[in-house]
């Protein structure tokens, strides 16, 4: 198991668990990893294991199949394949894969829901003003 030091409490601009890909930063978690707190990150996040709190990233967020997330998620493209509880904002596109289970309100510009995904919540679509990142 590629356990990384990905536990970040409170405000975090984490350097741990960071992988550069195509010159862009990626924060990559493994299935045994736990992230609790608030992560504001200039790059993309691959969330696996357990995430609780708040994730605001400039790049993309993708939540792996076995992951369990109880968090506010905000990213450009957000792809969910695991279980997520919380509000999701996709500045560009939100994709719910066939195994995704999302319970929470979503705000998106584009939306794709694959057959098999479960969604319970309000959907708002369209361009939207930047909501305060520092909330």
């Amino acid at each position: 198991m590629d356990v990384q030091e990905a536990v970040a409490e409170g405000q975090a601009s984490v350097d741990n668990g960071e992988v550069k890909r195509d010159g862009r930063k990626q924060f990559s978690m493994g299935p045994g990893d736990i992230l609790e707190g608030k992560l504001i990150y200039d790059g993309s996040v691959h969330a696996d294991g357990h995430v609780e709190g708040e994730l605001r990233v400039t790049g993309n967020i993708d939540v792996a199949t076995g992951a369990s997330v109880k968090a506010l998620l905000e990213g450009a493209n957000v792809t969910l394949k695991g279980q997520v509880e919380g509000m999701v904002t996709a500045r560009d596109k939100l994709t719910l894969g066939k195994n995704a289970r999302l319970s929470g309100d979503i705000q998106v510009r584009r939306l794709q829901i694959d057959d098999g995904a479960t969604l319970n919540g309000h959907v708002r679509m369209g361009d939207f003003e930047h909501q305060a990142s520092g909330q």
Binding site: L111, I113, T118, L119
Partner: peptide
Amino acid sequence: ARLTVQDGATFSGKVSMG
């Protein structure tokens, strides 16, 4: 019970699945 939304679709509302 089941929902499929294709990319490009316009979709908004309160979704209850099950």
